[in-house]
Design a protein around this nucleic acid. Structure first.
Length: 259
DNA sequence: ATGGCATGACAATCATGA
């Protein structure tokens, strides 16, 4: 089984990339973030033509998340939940379903903008609600994966220039503590379960030739419960779509599991 | 140097991203 996550920064603009990527990477589930479109504009037909069933919750202009399910491989998604039941929110940032026996949680975590801002407080509150809800969810679903754009670089080795970024949004101690609380639930960062190249990142700014200079951050993650971690055989970042014409600023992350 | 790109909403710039 393969689970993947990709912040596409507009599914309308990136539909061709998603189609091309899925044809070469027929994963069982692809979690998408930043759809930036309303539900009536979701390309259900185009995704279905690839053999994937779409489950999504979108909104105008911002946010929006989706689960694309390879139904021939893993069947239909069950017990679909949109957003956090314990957190009233207009912003569409979370979608969850049981797929192939795994509770798959797809999240677009708040950006935070700047430490100390209102948006930063919202980010920490959202993370707190997520952690509490997950604690309960993991009791009901021992096999659970939390995939998405966390907007947190958990360690300095996940940052191209830690000195320049020290204390800033995406790397601040408060955000890293929130990430650690998720780990405290028993969730493991699959990427760090295996040997990885140094300076592995999942996002690069569009500006300043950041990708060319590999000036990036690792902020897209696949965390899994201990029962699922036992089955995990690989986790890799696929940099290839970031080299394509008019790319998303994020690139896919893929985790592989034994049956 | 708070810029640079990119996207969407909207019709010239502006909000947001990370």
């Amino acid at each position: 089984m393969q689970l993947a996550t990709w912040n596409v920064n507009s599914l309308k603009v990136r539909l061709g990339h998603v189609q091309d990527w899925l044809r070469s990477n027929p994963v069982d589930v692809l979690c998408l973030q930043e759809l930036k479109l309303t539900d009536e504009n979701f390309p259900i037909t185009e995704i279905a033509a690839l053999g994937y069933t779409s489950h999504f919750t979108g909104q105008k202009t911002y946010n929006g998340v989706a689960l694309l399910v390879n139904h021939a491989k893993v069947g239909e998604a069950k017990d679909l939940v949109k957003n956090l039941p314990n957190f009233a929110d207009e912003q569409q940032r979370l979608i969850t379903a049981t797929i192939g026996g795994v509770r798959v949680v797809c999240g677009y975590f708040p950006n935070g903008q700047a430490v100390g801002s209102d948006k930063f407080a919202y980010k920490l509150n959202w993370l707190d609600a997520l952690t509490h809800w997950l604690s309960d969810e993991m009791e009901r679903h021992p096999q659970l994966a939390l995939l998405g754009d966390y907007n947190i670089a958990p360690e300095d080795r996940d940052v191209h220039d830690p000195a320049k970024w020290e204390g800033q949004n995406l790397v601040s101690p408060q955000e890293r503590q929130a990430f650690a609380r998720l780990q405290g639930l028993g969730l493991r960062d699959t990427f760090r379960m295996f040997d990885q190249p140094e300076k592995s990142f999942s996002w690069w700014d569009y500006r300043m030739g950041a990708f060319r200079r590999n000036a990036g951050l690792r902020i897209d993650h696949i965390l899994v419960s201990s029962a699922l971690a036992e089955r995990c055989t690989a986790c890799d970042i696929d940099r290839v779509p970031r080299t394509w014409e008019q790319p998303s600023d994020h690139t896919p992350v893929v985790a592989t599991f034994k049956d």
